[in-house]
Design a protein around this nucleic acid. Structure first.
Lengths: 187, 187
DNA sequence: CAAAGCATACCAACCAGTCGGTATGAGTCA
DNA sequence: TGACTCATACCGACTGGTTGGTATGCTTTG
């Protein structure tokens, strides 16, 4: 689904998709009722891909929850390399374009983005409880992390390189450190 | 340019644009060499619009620079009302869609977004100097503010309402308060 | 009159989606 | 075993409509 990430959903024709995937148009419409159905399936697949990337990563076994959330952010920062289509979020790209015209795709993208935030909320909740932080919630902080990442992607697209996104993530990390303090049992 | 904000650039045809503006296609192509030229002009106009909205707002005369930057964020939060197309950023929307396919529009959107950040950098610089904050720069912080806003817009589009964007801005304000402390001469 | 501003009709390219047809393989029965 | 049926997977030419853009001529203004 690289083409959609490069050119957008509307900018990618079904013909182009089929040519890139090496299938014919007949096969495409045999498997998907419409182009919109492909968008829904792509968003769902993206959510599953994200889950497989982050859900059982090594760093999630650190006993200190603050170390876990900082490691997650560092991991995200490390992925910011290459061209925009290589590190940006398919769900964020699609929902921006289609949130008004296709409720089905909007919902699939929402599920992907907020679902990923949900999967992080536990660690943030533990970190908040562990440090006795007040004024923020685990789910709220997890969603804010996603918002900053999405915003960083837009800055990177505007600027033509990943540096702008890395700056945003660096500020995000700074925010978390100000909230939680540095991690305990590292170094 | 409401149509572009609702449906995206590719999703809005020149015919629809002309109908909405009450002009004919002949007049359109008399004024713009191409649809892409319209996009460039729209991004530039958006930047000018933002400048007129924020550059000489009342709150920018507060003698405390920290009060100024917090007032800016509060002002942005207050604008998060209604449907997504009413409060989201035209430049952010367009650059996401066209950053690869149209370098001219990408550059115009970059100028709009980063130009607005530049116009805030002075206040952030003053706030940093005033409070003796280390580890962040005025321009870096101003750009981060834009990134969080853009990310909030995406979360709002995914969620179908402005609440998600307000949450992001609330965390952004929290970050600034942690960095600078509360403002001095307010209340 | 001459140029600029604008309107109308038009074009080739492209779009998502359709449709008649084929290939294949599993199940049935004599 | 082999002829028959049925369902699923797949093919690619085709269609009706839309796209950005153009060609031409009218109309207003200086």
């Amino acid at each position: 689904m690289r083409l959609v990430r490069q050119q957008g959903f509307g900018g990618t024709s079904v013909d182009a998709l089929c040519a890139a995937a090496g299938v014919t148009k007949g096969a495409f419409f045999h498997h998907f009722a419409s182009k919109e159905a492909l968008g829904v399936a792509a968003a769902a697949a993206w959510g599953a891909h994200a889950a497989s990337l982050f859900d059982d990563a090594q760093y999630r076994r650190d006993p200190d929850p603050v170390a876990r959330v900082l490691a997650y952010v560092d991991h995200r920062a490390a992925l910011l390399e290459g061209a925009a289509w290589e590190f940006t979020c398919l769900a964020g790209t699609m929902v921006q374009e289609l949130h008004e015209s296709s409720p089905a795709i909007r919902e699939a993208c929402r599920a992907s983005i907020f679902g990923h935030a949900d999967s992080l909320a536990g660690d943030f909740h533990d970190a908040i409880a562990d440090r006795g932080v007040v004024g923020v919630t685990g789910i709220g902080l997890a969603r804010h992390v996603q918002a900053v990442l999405q915003g960083g992607f837009i800055m990177a697209k505007a600027n033509g390189g990943p540096e702008a996104a890395r700056d945003a993530v660096a500020h995000l990390r700074h925010y978390l450190v100000l909230i939680f303090g540095e991690e305990n049992d590292h170094d």
